[in-house]
Design a protein around this nucleic acid. Structure first.
Length: 302
DNA sequence: GACCAGGAAACGA
DNA sequence: TCGTTTCATGGT
């Protein structure tokens, strides 16, 4: 058996399960306390041991910045949480529930494509679509251990060569033409994803919004999960629901008012606040393993 | 079997 | 400008 190589990355307060199961990424597998997935074409298995993340790859590695960048292990989480609005008891409750939850830094294309596929889909279904797409049209990746075959997420160039029918065979439905259109624009060089990171937030967002099938929510997911835009704040149905419930009980707020509140209230790391709120709701509703084990039905919180 | 999902676009008033 | 409908699919 090829032992590959391992590295131990010192980091405090890193909850791999919360992070990898919080709806940022969709193709990670848990077996016991370890998680495995593909980062930049490399299979990797992760485990938290004490105050460190231990990583094992199938192939020897010359350097590991591809992984530390993805995991954002250099980020001082306590400093970020200290920037959260102190008097916000809802957010503080979420911080207690989800301690160690982190934001990852994903590949922009994989992130954009994944969230184009996420529209009105449950996270379990997004996982299935992403998995099918990778298995059929991605590149096989040497994986360690369990003998399971893994595949990289297909590049924009790979997807741009496919047909809408082929994409629909991955069960993505009406999202197929959106994904195909985005892939073709990126592959043709009409949208430079690497350059977006050098723009101010509003301009980067505007560039993403030009894509068919990409609205404010999906654009903000990409800006937050794939770039250094910590104030991006994706508002999905669940987050909108709790924002109204927590901060505007029995009071009408339109979308613009909600956005103004978000910008004013949550501060420089609003995106982190959002991820804590989002994951907290999912834990409370039994969507994902957390400190409490509930089996709440699939209905909205009161 | 109804309801809904990490939405967005097209449509109608 | 704002509410409503449509889109495809499957988990619960």
């Amino acid at each position: 058996m090829n032992p590959g190589t391992t590295i131990t990355v010192p980091v405090t307060a890193y909850d791999l399960s919360a992070t990898l199961a919080s709806g940022q990424v969709f193709d990670w597998e848990q077996h016991g306390s370890t998680w495995s997935g593909v980062v930049q074409g490399r299979w990797v298995e992760l485990q938290v041991v004490g105050d460190a993340v231990v990583a094992r790859t199938a192939a020897p590695q010359r350097e590991w910045t591809w992984l530390t960048h993805f995991l954002q292990t250099g980020v001082d989480l306590s400093r970020i949480i200290a920037s959260f609005p102190a008097g916000d008891r809802h957010l503080q409750e979420a911080v207690r529930t989800c301690r160690g939850l982190r934001l990852l830094r994903q590949d922009p294309w994989e992130c954009l494509a994944s969230f184009i596929l996420s529209a009105t889909k449950q996270i379990v279904q997004i996982r299935q679509i992403v998995r099918r797409l990778s298995e059929r049209y991605g590149e096989p990746v040497a994986a360690g251990g369990d003998g399971a075959r893994r595949f990289s997420f297909p590049s924009a160039e790979q997807i741009a060569l496919l047909t809408e029918v082929e994409l629909r065979s991955c069960k993505m439905g009406f999202r197929a033409p959106y994904l195909l259109g985005a892939a073709r624009r990126v592959a043709a060089g009409n949208l430079d994803l690497a350059a977006l990171g050098r723009l101010p937030l509003p301009e980067a967002r505007a560039a993403l919004l030009q894509l068919e099938g990409v609205g404010r929510k999906i654009a903000d997911c990409v800006l937050l999960f794939a770039y250094d835009f910590p104030e991006a704040f994706p508002v999905d149905v669940w987050v909108r629901r709790v924002l109204r419930q927590y901060y505007f009980p029995n009071r009408h707020v339109d979308e613009a008012g909600l956005q103004r509140f978000i910008h004013r209230h949550f501060g420089p790391h609003a995106g982190y606040c959002q991820q804590y709120l989002f994951h907290h709701i999912r834990v409370v509703n039994g969507k994902v393993a957390g400190r409490t084990t509930t089996h709440a039905p699939n209905r909205k919180p009161r």
